[in-house]
Every structure is written in structure tokens, then in C-alpha cells.
Nucleic acid binder design. Sequence first.
DNA 1: AACAATACTCAACACAACGTTGATTATCCT
DNA 2: AGGATAATCAACGTTGTGTTGAGTATTGTT
Lengths: 201, 201
Amino acid sequence: MTKKLNDKRVMRTKRLIRDTLTELMEQKGFDAITVKDITDKAMINRGTFYLHYQDKYDLLEKSEAEFFSSLEQIVRDLNPQVAISLTSQNEPFPVIVKLFDYFQETAPFLKALLGPKGDPKFQVKLKEMIKTLMRQVLLSQVNQEDLLVPEEFLLSYISSAHVGVVQYWLETGMQKSSEEMTLILAKMTLLGPGHATGLLK
Amino acid sequence: MTKKLNDKRVMRTKRLIRDTLTELMEQKGFDAITVKDITDKAMINRGTFYLHYQDKYDLLEKSEAEFFSSLEQIVRDLNPQVAISLTSQNEPFPVIVKLFDYFQETAPFLKALLGPKGDPKFQVKLKEMIKTLMRQVLLSQVNQEDLLVPEEFLLSYISSAHVGVVQYWLETGMQKSSEEMTLILAKMTLLGPGHATGLLK
DNA sequence: AACAATACTCAACACAACGTTGATTATCCT
DNA sequence: AGGATAATCAACGTTGTGTTGAGTATTGTT
């Protein structure tokens, strides 16, 4: 007998718990949250929580995993060829635009996790993913021997920069569109044929 | 009657507690640490901890404050003129070199706080400080009207990038000297007269 | 519509860490 | 040497943890 995965009760409860987690993380930050906090706010029995998650860390892990799974799906969906191809500097990378679209959809969750009360591990994972993307771009655009800086430092620099800009964008209310953000990032990043010409007039 | 600040017992205990915090943060991360963990490892009575700190969050705050206080001292010590003056691309910024020197001294603490089990608030504060430094450099080097990208995005980009590189440097065992690191950063950063010429041959 | 499965509730449990207290001992400063 | 105070120790109630067993409510299935 396999467990029933489509039970309305289970789905309702899980979504309730995860939404409550997001709300509480914005308010008090993850480590100040107790399981009791979550179940009180979600108005479910504390025992119910333990029916679905081992503890609050398990909940966080599974929520993050779900996020990254969607993110990887988005990257994978786009034809890799198209994905890593650079366009002219006045047209945004298609992948990055899609990523920003998804960031916007999941903004409350993302903002909480990337904010000052968030999870540093999550930030590391996100950087790692961007690093992988950028490594492909780098390989396709630049001869390794031409680099005057160790590749890994450059990738750390760029991926951290990108995450930092996303954080700033989230904090300031996401005033710019996905396309605008992608263009801004492209101009600041030393990659691609138009590199170093995008920043100054 | 003012409290005596130079009591050997107090200094010994405080240093013991803070060093133990650093060690434990590397091992299990801040939020997994209990006061009992700290006092057990430091072999002091649990009550003694509460004689000096309200709770573990208070301890973390005061440790961070001490770090930033030293950091600001270093920046302030250097003549501001010298501090923000850029040198040729083959000579490191003097301030940045000094900062890396201090990072190296406090490496265990810093590594713990900037690592995957660290404190996101600390990262924010460090970025903020670098942002302030970079804002000065930006003002002295570039005409605002010439920027094709909003200033705050650029500053977020650069400061996050710098912190990210420091993280990578700490994680990988600080194999490069402060001078080397400063040069690498300068080459990757689009600021100063030699900008955009440092990355590729 | 009725039944079986199971998600959820509820009350209770032992356990661990918290933050505080009062009394005692050890160490430091002058 | 003597007064001040830091550190120890044992004990306290409180809060959250993770688990259990028994009852209730919802759900998917036939």
C-alpha cells in the first residue's frame, strides 16, 4: 500500500505550514521560530506538524529543495544552446529574465531567506547555481589562457555580485522589471563581447 | 563606585567564552549552539555566562560589534586622502590591503560568521561598510551622469562581489597574500582609471 | 451512500535548555 | 591583609521538544 499523495488534507496542511514559515521568517528570523509558533499561527495541532516534518530544520530544507527544484527546471527547460548564448548588450539573456520572473513569483519566500534573518546556506546554494551557469558562459566566451585572474575568483566575484543585486532588488520592492534587471546585470558584468563598454558613456 | 574593568578574571572569562563561540560556530553553526554547549566546552559555570551576557544573541552581537569597531579603526587610521586614492593597477589599494591583513588575523571568527552556518546580519553589515568605502571611490573617480547603471545597483554589485571573494578566500585556506587579493579584486572591479582593461590580455 | 483508510486533534509524558536566585568559595585589586 | 567581587554550585519554575495512545473528522474508493 503506497501512501496517498493527493489527499486534500495533506496538501492543505503542508501549504499552510510552509506559508506560515515564510511569514514568521520575515518577522523574527528562522532560528527564533519554534514549532509551536508555526502551529499556533497556522492553527493546527502541534502533533500534525510532526506528521509531515521531523523538525523545523527539516521543514526549511524541504522548502528550499522545492524552490531549487523549480529553479533547475526553468534552466533545464530552455534549450541549453539558447540558454548560454549571449545576446547583444541591449537584449537581456533569456535565462536570466526567466529566473527573475520566478524570483518575483516567490518573492516573499526568497526575500525572507536572502534577508538579514535568512539562511546563509540558502545563499550559498543559490550562488553555486549561478556559478555553474556563469562557468558555461565563461567557457563559451573567453579563452582560459587570456584570463588575468584565477577563474574561481572571477566566478565567486560574479555570482556573489549577482545574488547581492537580487537581494537589493528584493529589499527595495522590486521596482524594476526582469528585463531591466537583466540588462543592468549584463552591463556590470565583465563577460561577453561587449564587456567593459557597458558601464560608462 | 564604578565597576572595575581590568579584572583578570573577567577578561579571562570573556575571552574564553568568545573563543569558544568561534569554535562552536565552525562546528555546528550559531543557532544549534546552546549556552550549555558554550559553558561546558569552556569549562565554566553556566551562571557565569549570564554574569556577562544576557543570552547567546547578546554574545554574538557584542562579538560582532568588537570586530567592526576594530575594522572602522583601521579605515579611520589611514589618511582618508590616501585611503580613497587609487593607485596604478599594479599597486594595491592601501586600505584594502590593511583590511585583508586584519581579516587574516581574525580568520577563524570571520570564517565562521561568513560561512554557511554563519550570521546573515553580519554579512549585511560588512557589505554596508564596503559600500560606504566604495561610494567614496566612485564619487572621486566617476561623473555621476556618465553612469549607465543606477549607482545603488552598482554599489550592491561591487560590495557583494567583494564579500563573496573574501568568503571564497577564507574557505580555500587563504592561499593568496593580502596584496595579491587586492590586485585580483582591482582587476575584476570596474572602477578607477584602468577599469575594464585588467581582466583580459 | 457507506466503508475503510488515514489525516488530524487532544492530553499527557519525559527530557533538555532556559534564565534566575541565594548561599558559598576563590580570586583579584589596593 | 582585607574588602570587593567574580565564579561556583544547587535548585527553581518555565518553555519548547519530540513522542505516544486514543478519539474524531475528512477523504478517496467502491
